[in-house]
Design a protein around this nucleic acid. Structure first.
Lengths: 298, 298
DNA sequence: CGCTGTGATACCCGGCAGGTATCACACGGT
DNA sequence: ACCGTGTGATACCTGCCGGGTATCACAGCG
């Protein structure tokens, strides 16, 4: 037999190392981030490639690039590391039954809804206390998958809900956020075409999964705080769910975008996970959906 | 600070060791299965408990029992190990785009449907070849989660479909399989009550997730082959989907059980995974559903 | 044509995973 | 009561491998 008949079952250490290199695309920085020196990291990656029998990275003397297989491993390794972290988290927290339920949501979204949900859960006798954690945009899924949170507020269709059980909470339209002085701010309503290419107010660009940015005139951002700054400066415009008032500065105007897809806020939990506290919260949430807000907006 | 402030990120080795002990509930046998000696295994488990700060096993000098936290870790560790294995599998197979799609199904189920599905996929130009893998009952989910298969035939409501995207293929009633000499075999139809407690033909008992068997008079089985033997011997009866003819021996009779839940055969794939070959197969499957079988059974 | 920065290589060392031998103890037989 | 048996725990040793330092090889660039 040849030397390719090597073992399966990678170690999490190897996966962590690979993810670091794949994210940094630089052995030195990755090693620094991992708190080790560069040579052991190079050796570990090379050994990983030999064990898998697959080339993961193209090193061409000036930087590093992911191969196709490397891209697959990056995605799979993240999922696997999340699963391992979830094993640790959930095992630790299995001890006390009266632990609070951890709910994660992206900062600045669904304020009012969350407040009502918490009130409803608190009123439900027997429901465990709920602890709210805020995360950056799109990070809820990883919080759920890695066990750092039990349940999340997510948004369809913008978030990827694959692998989660969901409960619809409410659906709403989107508004464009503009500087109040801008000509478009006077319009009673807008369309996506109106806001897609506004001179002087380009839409901000978020990094793709591989870390690169799409082309375009807009500023590059990767956290909500950066975006908040740019909005406050009137440097970009935003199309967001109508309830995301946290973004609305005093000198901004929200104009409905009539053809933007409706956003549904959902309560998401890992598929197949059940606990009394979780089902109690889900019940409170579904009761909430059937009850309109006490004071509907004028 | 106290000594409880220990690291996260478990190693897969620790998880594999724990799963072995939790499944065997015996350090010696688990060590043998892992190919190591018993003392290092004891030490590794103890270290795992210290790192997690949680007692996982109750050792009381005569055997080992899982604690609540241990049960949680067993489930989570299996999922995590599956995810790690999936990372290796899928990365290796990411290389060649023309690789066959691996379909897993439980042996002896959905014969006819699978044949039609394969024919339909073969007719669809551009669909990758399909490789069929057979597994024991209930193991399809692990094949999908660990990346050993890309897609599975599963059955609602008997299989746990949490975390999978599914496509319904067909729905059918269930029949009871009886020795032809048995009095019940003469009936034109039966109910669950009729077959639930037949003297001399107790229903076989499958192990639960924790490895123990429910109480009852029936024989204990944990593979389909064992069950096939017992059915052939006329020692037990079976309630199965009507199409599972593989179980029907010449001296057996199938009688419809009119109040048994209908079984839907579904094509399942890991949520959020997409590939051209997979979508082609899914398309072929949905086309199949709309087309009734060429020669309906009389 | 050196200088800079990249990843790869060579080599050494220490910690830890794993092995062997043995212990401590709970049963069950007689 | 007592020893035999089988359990997991402990003690101690050893070899391997993960990690460190020093250095190399090479590609750009002024």
């Amino acid at each position: 037999m040849d030397g390719a008949a090597v073992v399966d079952d990678l170690e999490t250490r190897e996966l962590r190392y690979f993810v670091a290199v794949a994210e940094e695309l630089h052995f030195g920085r990755a090693a620094h981030r991992l708190g080790i020196a560069q040579p052991p990291l190079s050796r570990a990656i090379r050994q990983l490639e030999r064990r898998l029998g697959v080339r993961l990275l193209d090193r061409d003397r000036r930087g590093v690039a992911l191969t196709g297989a490397g891209g697959v491993l990056l995605r799979e390794a993240r999922a696997a590391l999340d699963a391992v972290a979830a094993a640790a988290h959930r095992t630790r927290r299995a001890e006390d039954l009266q632990r609070p339920l951890v709910l994660v949501t992206k900062a600045g979204a669904s304020h009012e809804l969350l407040r009502r949900l918490l009130a409803s859960a608190a009123a439900d006798t027997g429901a465990a206390p709920v602890e709210v954690v805020l995360c950056e945009v799109g990070e809820q899924a990883r919080f759920l998958r890695s066990g750092r949170a039990d349940v999340a507020l997510m948004h369809r269709p913008v978030d990827d809900l694959a692998g989660f059980d969901t409960e619809d909470l409410c659906t709403e339209g989107q508004v464009a956020l503009l500087p109040s002085a801008h000509p478009l701010a006077a319009r009673p309503r807008l369309t996506l075409a109106d806001v897609s290419d506004v001179p002087g107010l380009p839409i901000a660009r978020w990094p793709r999964l591989d870390g690169t940015y799409p082309d375009g005139p807009g500023p590059e951002v990767h956290t909500q705080s950066q975006l908040a700054h740019l909005v406050a400066l009137g440097k970009t415009l935003l199309v967001i769910p109508a309830s995301s008032r946290a973004w609305q500065w005093p000198d901004h105007v929200a104009v409905p975008v009539i053809d933007a897809p409706a956003i549904t806020t959902v309560l998401a939990r890992p598929a197949g996970h059940h606990s009394p506290a979780l089902t109690a919260l889900t019940r409170a949430a579904s009761a909430l959906r059937d009850t309109p807000p006490a004071a509907p907006a004028p």
